[in-house]
Computed example of a mutant assay.
Amino acid sequence: MNYWLVKSEPFKYSWDDFVNQGVGMWDGVRNYAARNNLAAMKLDDLVLFYHSNEGLEVVGIARVVKECYPDPTCEDPRWVVVDLSPVEKLPKGVTLQAIKTDERLQDMALIRLSRLSVQPVKKEEFDIIVAKSYEQ
Rank of each mutant, 00 (worst) to 15 (best):
Leu90Tyr: 02
Glu67Ile: 12
Ala34Val: 11
Met1Ala: 13
Asp76His: 08
Gly60Trp: 00
Ser52Cys: 03
Val81Cys: 15
Pro70Gln: 10
Lys123Tyr: 06
Gly28Ser: 09
Lys122Arg: 15
Pro70Asp: 11
Lys12Ala: 11
Ala40Ser: 14
Lys7Pro: 00
Lys12Trp: 06
Glu135His: 04
Ala98Thr: 10
Gln136Phe: 13
Val59Pro: 02
Gln21Ile: 10
Asp44Met: 11
Lys7Met: 06
Asp16Leu: 09
Asn36Ser: 15
Thr73Asp: 14
Gln119Lys: 05
Leu43Thr: 08
Lys123Asn: 11
Ala62Tyr: 00
Val118Ala: 05
Pro91Trp: 08
Thr95Ser: 14
Lys89Ile: 06
Ser117His: 04
Leu105Tyr: 04
Glu57Ser: 15
Lys66Phe: 05
Asn31Ile: 07
Glu67Arg: 12
Tyr134Leu: 14
Asp102Pro: 06
Cys68Met: 00
Ser52Thr: 07
Ser85Glu: 15
Lys132Phe: 09
Met25Trp: 04
Val29Glu: 08
Gln119Pro: 01
Ser14Cys: 07
Leu116Phe: 10
Asn53Thr: 15
Phe126Gly: 02
Asn31Pro: 01
Lys92Asp: 15
Glu75Trp: 00
Lys100Arg: 15
Asp27His: 12
Asn37Tyr: 12
Phe11Asp: 14
Arg115Thr: 11
Lys123Gln: 15
Lys132Tyr: 09
Tyr134Ile: 11
Phe126Leu: 08
Val64Pro: 01
Ile129Cys: 06
Lys92Cys: 10
Met25Cys: 13
Ser114Trp: 12
Leu56Glu: 15
Glu67Phe: 09
Arg78Asp: 10
Leu113His: 15
Met108Ile: 06
Ser14Leu: 05
Val118Cys: 05
Thr101Cys: 03
Leu90Ile: 05
Met41Lys: 03
Lys7Asn: 00
Lys89Glu: 14
Asp44Tyr: 11
Phe18Lys: 04
Tyr32Phe: 13
Val59Asn: 08
Val87Asp: 09
Lys123His: 10
Phe18Pro: 04
Val29Phe: 01
Glu9Gln: 13
Val130His: 02
Pro10Lys: 02
Glu75His: 09
Thr101Phe: 03
Arg63Ala: 07
Val81Lys: 05
Ala40Gln: 13
Val81Ser: 07
Asn20Trp: 08
Leu48Asp: 02
Ser117Thr: 11
Val65Gln: 00
Asp71Gln: 02
Val65Thr: 13
Arg35Trp: 09
Tyr13Ile: 01
Ser133Tyr: 03
Gly24Glu: 11
Asp76Gly: 08
Val6Gly: 05
Val130Gln: 06
Leu38Met: 11
Val130Glu: 02
Gly24His: 10
Lys66Asn: 08
Glu125Thr: 03
Val94Cys: 07
Lys66Trp: 00
Lys132Glu: 09
Glu125Asn: 07
Tyr69His: 15
Val121Asp: 01
Ala40Arg: 14
Ala39Ser: 12
Thr95Arg: 05
Thr95Leu: 08
Asp127Gln: 10
Lys89Leu: 11
Arg115Asp: 09
Val81Thr: 00
Ala33Lys: 13
Leu105Val: 05
Gln119Glu: 03
Val121Phe: 00
Val87Ser: 10
Tyr69Arg: 14
Leu5Gly: 02
Lys122Trp: 09
Gln106Arg: 12
Leu5Tyr: 00
Glu124Leu: 12
Met41Leu: 04
Phe126Ser: 06
Gly22Val: 08
Phe18Trp: 07
Pro70Gly: 07
Glu103Arg: 12
Asp127Pro: 02
Ile128Asp: 05
Ser8Gln: 00
Phe49Trp: 08
Leu113Ala: 13
Asp27Ala: 09
